[in-house]
Design a protein around this nucleic acid. Sequence first.
DNA 1: AAGGGCCTCAACCGCGTGACT
DNA 2: TAGTCACGCGGTTGAGGCCCT
Length: 301
Amino acid sequence: MDANGRSCSSETQSEEEIDLRRGPWTVEEDLILINYIANHGEGRWNSLARCAGLKRTGKSCRLRWLNYLRPDVRRGNITLEEQLLILELHSRWGNRWSKIAQHLPGRTDNEIKNYWRTRVQKHAKQLQCDVNSKQFKDTMRYLWMPRLVERIRAAAAASSGANTTTTSPTTTHHQIYNNNSDVITGQVLSSAGSNNEYGVSQINASFTPENSSTAGSSELSVGTQVSPVSDLTDYYNFQPNNYADNFHASQVNYQESLTSPTGYFNQGLDFEAIEQNNMWLGDGDVSDNLWNVEDIWLLQQ
DNA sequence: AAGGGCCTCAACCGCGTGACT
DNA sequence: TAGTCACGCGGTTGAGGCCCT
């Protein structure tokens, strides 16, 4: 019996015998699939497709359900926190999208893959280097990720400043990665802006470049006195032998990551000069304007 | 207003893997 | 052991929307 009470008599019918539909799903198809799964559960997608009366392959049904119709699928923009996590996990696992997606609740591997290809690979292309090259990985690790941390901190500070009547600690969950690449899931009690056991400030997960009035300079306009220059120079004015000391409180634990195998960023780079060249001051999406292409290439020479 | 280029993302495709017979 | 099937993964495609000229 299918979701509409009809008997499923076409178990042996091959896909070739059915006039299979392709392309975008209709609302009616979605409803059929949702209702069928609600009554019968997931799994055995080929027979599910037949029994539900959907002229789709099992694969197509599975994909539609997992990537779109599942109730726990999280729609909307990738948050800064999620972006940081994606970059971190990708640096460890590479294109293991499903594995990465497991650590971003509600996000699908397809969504993360699309994010990576459309946002991250775009910058590799702009830099005229391979996304898997050491140059690009170092650029991501030493420039982009600290910048994301800074923006997350700024967002947290902005939200705390905008909500000064709330002084009680808030509870957040963080997944942080130790040096063995193991996931540590922590329930963190902290006031906004304070440090926690993982050395990570409380993060306003709802903040996105898109839902801020305008990413970049605008986040400073809500009363948050976060200077991208001064804070970033704290981050980046590390010397080869003391950078770990300069990179601790309120930041994701990047001490391990800060050893650049290729040395591109271990040679006392003048990040303040980079700041003054307006490298970080893009006013668009956080993933845009993160670096000036010519500056990066000059740095790498 | 039009159209061309670019970007995003849903959907498809091919392949690998594991379970089962 | 070989064959089949279901499932999942990563890569790719293409439609539609947006932006710029």
